[in-house]
Design a binder for these strands. Sequence first.
RNA 1: CGGGGUGUGGCGCAGUCUGGUAGCGCACCUGUUUUGGGUACAGGUGGUCGGAGGUUCGAAUCCUCUCGCCCCGACCA
Length: 582
Amino acid sequence: MRASRLYAPTLKETPSDAEVVSHQLLTRGGYIRKLTAGVYDYLPLAHRVLRNIEEIIRQELNRAGAQELLMPTVQPAEIWEESGRWQKYGPELLRLKDRKGSDFCLGPTHEEVIVDLVRRDVRSWRQLPINLYQIQGKFRDEIRPRAGLMRGREFIMKDAYSFDVNEEGALQSYDAMYKAYQRIFTRCGLDFRPVEADTGSIGGSRSHEFQVLAESGEDAIVSCDSCEFAANVEQAELVIRGESLSSSPEMKVLTKVHTPNQKSIEAISSALDVDKKSCVKTLVMIADDQAVMVLVRGDHEVNDIKVKKLLDAQEIRMATEEEIKELGLVSGFIGPYQASNQAQKATWLVDQALKGKVNLVVGANELDYHFSGVSLERDCPQLDRYADVRLAEAGDACPRCRGELRAFKGIEVGHVFYLGTKYTKAMKCNILDENGQETPIVMGCYGIGVTRVMAAAIEQNHDQDGIVWPVSLAPFKLHILTLQSNKEDVVSCAEGFYNEALDMGIDVLYDDRDLRAGGKFKDADLIGIPFRIAIGGRGLKEGVVEVKKRSEKTVYKVPTTQVMQVIAQELAGQNALNSFTE
RNA sequence: CGGGGUGUGGCGCAGUCUGGUAGCGCACCUGUUUUGGGUACAGGUGGUCGGAGGUUCGAAUCCUCUCGCCCCGACCA
């Protein structure tokens, strides 16, 4: 491809609405343009990257025995009503009507469609296992699209669905996909970690996320530094650290203290000069319209997903200011001791880290007052439901080996779920097993955010000047620049290499534009192609051109006669540049 | 949805407080110049100032409504 013809308008300045690096660089490099919030055009460069990612996915999934197909984007409401998700999915599901007034939606995921497909055609256990996947545009009407491609409303996703006779088979399918994912993300040049995860609205019981480690990630994950354990903080189960307190701490007297306007744990702990660990946060949550009081240590964070699971609730949220008042509570001064009658009737959950703790500070349920010297078992004997309800954090003990957990930020690029029979039961997708018994098929489902992989790769591979693509994803592998476009020997040399590269089947971008060297270098760094050949009059006098890897600073002077061979070797993964000078 | 911010040629911004008929840089076009890290000079194209309504002799600027976009958002009890 000649740069003079390439549709890749680069920008000198960063667009003001781009916050994260991947969004900035993709926009500046002429890879993407925004159409509207969370919806983007993928220009030729981006399209090439996406095709590279898709190709890696195809190769690995096909190798794992999956088959590609393509399902519709527009889906009828009926199948969503069958699965129960027409009601449950919420406003994220973009719904529309056809001219007759029938309900449809834009597919955010395809469990319903694929189950409908499979139940028509599959009758016997002999036809299983089956694993089907597609690579397709998805639409989810996110509350708040953000960070460019990282959380868009329309995005490209690979979704796969496995169908097995029984749980054992399904777990084998799950395992095969898990391994395929590891190969896929490795080949994409990503630094990632598979982590245990919550199953979310897709449902199911066993699940791993594939998280790309990056500061800009939205997900918080913890991983053990002494074993393989890694999990999303929402999921990570916690164990009580055997903190050796002084064997029987003296229990202080319960005292009411004046704490004017001190509503936060921060304020209380500094005003009363007590450790945050000795304060108690009492949160009011609403689980399926029922009030729930949750107690955690002052320095801990509540994990609403754990609370939701514990109560077997469909929905969980924090109470509003009004709801708190209705319960007869005073926001900022809530506590378990002498709470209002209405509040007493609510469900109370206490984080296990508070079990047996003494001399705590809690809200007094009265404006501007707290109680200190509270010992839960002595003063609040009614609290009897202790459980793990908080978020994991760095320093917590590993639930497997008791090692120490470290915290990371991650970008979720892939997710694998063991689904079980959730959808096949609801939609009557049955087979006859070996014994002639009718039984629901056991499913798994597996997603990869293709567009998000592209963004994540940039979050992990960039410098001040632009993108540094892993070779496997790069839109072109080789970038040839002429440093002076008016010198005949320079141009003819470049044309020669360009044609040679084309003959060799190398994806090559040839910057033949009538630009000064500076501009070409800037664009080359921005776009991020792994290998660059710069041809200038100075070098040609010595019979050399300059070869540089985007990922390294070093510029190598390579004789013109050897350049293409060296490039070919480097692209094949051999070190051929090291023997040249500079 | 709640909170905050913002909307002025393709991009980045000034002008808005204090009303007087739109400006700068980049990009783009023409010419000359320059040619190894975004050359220099000259000339030029392009804007219903997000939209609607209002106040006024006069509105980018003041008022009302509305739309888009960006950021933050359980709590920190």
